[in-house]
């Protein structure tokens, strides 16, 4: 099973492709500026980036069996981003995706901006920031880092698949309502392989070369506000994506009640805010995802409120 993330030319509307070229150029421009600010270290960073690009190419040869005829293999965005830093990682992935398009015709030239945006910007830059956010939220210990990398690697594949489908939908070459669940469903498994390989690779490096691993973990302590923001982003993204897979079938009690014929004896709730996990004005998957995000926010606010209440009682 191979990921369908390298969009060929002909599938994106020119305005979508060119718009994503501009967005990608802006982000990669910022990344290059950030790398350039490292002064004399920038030259050695560039050499490491070049060799890391070759590493990503070679590491994509590694696959592992999942089931008969199906194998997982590495995309490497979060791995590169975590080891080299989010900005350098995104430039490495941009280079790799560009060479793949030129050398192997794996992805189009006009669609290159979109492919770099999906895998290099969203997948690598975004994925690495999520990995670091999770690691910082959980305390930056080795286990926290590995959890962060695993979750981010899975999310990076899912986000790239989601963005790819949205761009195809905007271009009129796919139907989002059918394409999105199909792409996310397939890539959920691919993402699992990506997460397992990335975590194992980082774990191996942490044991074999602790000095390289230590360089990858940001030393600066994270403020509580940033931790909360990172937590919100992660919870929101996870809930939003997971909501798309919410079952529309009745739960266990409803099923039994229907089968035994006493479902009609149930009484309606006195009020309905988000009936059947949907938000008024939003239909389908968007409504379910929004309901999930609102639910997560309500739980967060409740926890904050209870925490403050407990603190106030303790101090009094």
């Amino acid at each position: 099973m191979r990921p369908l993330l390298h969009i060929p030319d002909g599938f994106l509307a020119p305005q979508v492709a060119l718009g994503l070229w501009v967005a990608t150029a802006v982000v990669i421009g910022i990344a290059l500026r950030r790398i350039g600010q490292r002064g004399p270290a920038a030259a050695s960073q560039t050499i490491l980036m070049g060799l890391s690009g070759a590493f990503i190419f070679a590491a994509q040869m590694f696959n592992f069996p999942v089931a008969a005829g199906t194998s997982g293999h590495l995309l490497g965005g979060v791995l590169a981003g975590f080891l080299l830093g989010p900005w350098a990682g995104s430039v490495v992935m941009a280079t790799v995706i560009g060479i793949q398009a030129l050398l192997f015709q794996d992805g189009g030239l006009l669609a290159l901006g979109a492919n770099i945006f999906n895998m290099g910007v969203i997948g690598t830059l975004g994925g690495t920031l999520v990995a670091r956010g999770i690691a910082a939220t959980l305390g930056n210990a080795r286990r926290a880092t590995l959890i962060g990398v695993g979750v981010a690697a899975w999310l990076s594949v899912m986000a790239a698949a989601g963005f790819t489908t949205l761009q195809l939908g905007l271009s009129g070459t796919t139907d989002i309502s059918i394409g999105l669940p199909a792409m996310l469903g397939t890539h959920a498994l691919i993402g699992l392989g990506e997460a397992l390989i990335s975590v194992s690779a980082i774990s191996f490096i942490a044991v074999s070369a602790p000095e390289i691993f230590a360089k990858s973990v940001p030393a600066a302590p994270t403020s509580p506000r940033r931790r909360i923001a990172a937590g919100l982003l992660i919870a929101g993204t996870t809930v939003g994506l997971a909501s798309l897979f919410a079952s529309t079938s009745p739960d266990g009690l409803e099923k039994v009640a229907t089968d035994l014929g006493f479902i009609n004896t149930s009484q309606a709730a006195p009020f309905e805010l988000f009936a059947s996990y949907s938000v008024p004005g939003f239909s389908g998957a968007a409504g379910t995802a929004l309901a999930g995000v609102i639910g997560a926010l309500v739980v967060l606010l409740l926890i904050v409120f209870l925490n403050r209440l407990a603190s106030a009682r303790k101090s009094s």
């Binding site: 490491l48 397992l196 990335s198 194992s200």
Partner: peptide, 17 residues
């Protein structure tokens, strides 16, 4: 198997490094 594959990727990165 995933762990073995990840270890290979980790070892390869160290060689690239």
């Amino acid at each position: 198997r995933a762990k073995v594959t990840g270890n290979l990727a980790g070892a390869l990165f160290l060689r690239a490094y």
